[in-house]
Nucleic acid binder design. Sequence first.
DNA 1: GTTACTGCAAAGTCTTTGCATGCGG
DNA 2: CCGCATGCAAAGACTTTGCAGTAAC
Lengths: 138, 138
Amino acid sequence: MKAEGRLTHYRKTVLQLLRSNDSHPTAADVFRIVRRRRPGVAYATIYNALNWLERGGLIGSLNLTDEATRYDPIIERHDHFVCTRCGRLTDVQLKLPPDIVTRAAKNAKFRLAWHRTELFGLCGECSVSSPKTYRNAR
Amino acid sequence: MKAEGRLTHYRKTVLQLLRSNDSHPTAADVFRIVRRRRPGVAYATIYNALNWLERGGLIGSLNLTDEATRYDPIIERHDHFVCTRCGRLTDVQLKLPPDIVTRAAKNAKFRLAWHRTELFGLCGECSVSSPKTYRNAR
DNA sequence: GTTACTGCAAAGTCTTTGCATGCGG
DNA sequence: CCGCATGCAAAGACTTTGCAGTAAC
């Protein structure tokens, strides 16, 4: 996973944007924000930057629902809480007993590389407003 | 999440197909299989059936990578192993200490509805062949 | 008869690709 | 110079939608 190519202005911008923001934006979100400062930027450039950063291991990508991929500047192992109403994505850290995971992998004859847990439910804001769930991303 | 509408022939077919098959097929997979018996079936009918079954809680859907949604007849809480090389999706069951999950949700002020864990790595077949990973679905 | 499922085609959303241009090393 | 990032547009993959016909109750 070596980094071919250069850390260009756009790639740096996208990386800083992600690092200064814990909302786990989509490519479209990033595009919208970058375009405010550089109106000429192309959508493909954002995708290019995000894919390049991900290939280089500088960011991670998340597909937790049927919606667009979201990007995450935190590359250490961690978990997420997904609000099924507003879509908010929040970092959490679960400390699972190590052998629970390794044993499951061993039983299934898998070579485990990494794991993650997702919690689904209502975020603080959404649990005080409408009780109706909006999205069912199981 | 009540089931409006009828459990029609196609919906029953799709449900039985999923239940007789642990490969977690995509909509395209289901379409291909159903079309063998009923060449006139429309793609939209398969999507309709899958979405209806999911809304009714008869099946679950999985978005674990950046590829197409996969469907799962097991509706009890469970976890998955994803082969990062061939894409194989295998059911596993992790028994996490209950308070690990509930405590994380409480700390973050979330109302937890459910959770799931994904293990990523190489399946048995892929770990004996090429060591090169094909997909990086973090 | 009425409801709503199906087939078909078109459109919508998200993402990638091809190619010409041009910047940076 | 040369490589490769960028802008642009088009295409590709996946999914949904609108509508007319028709099957099920």
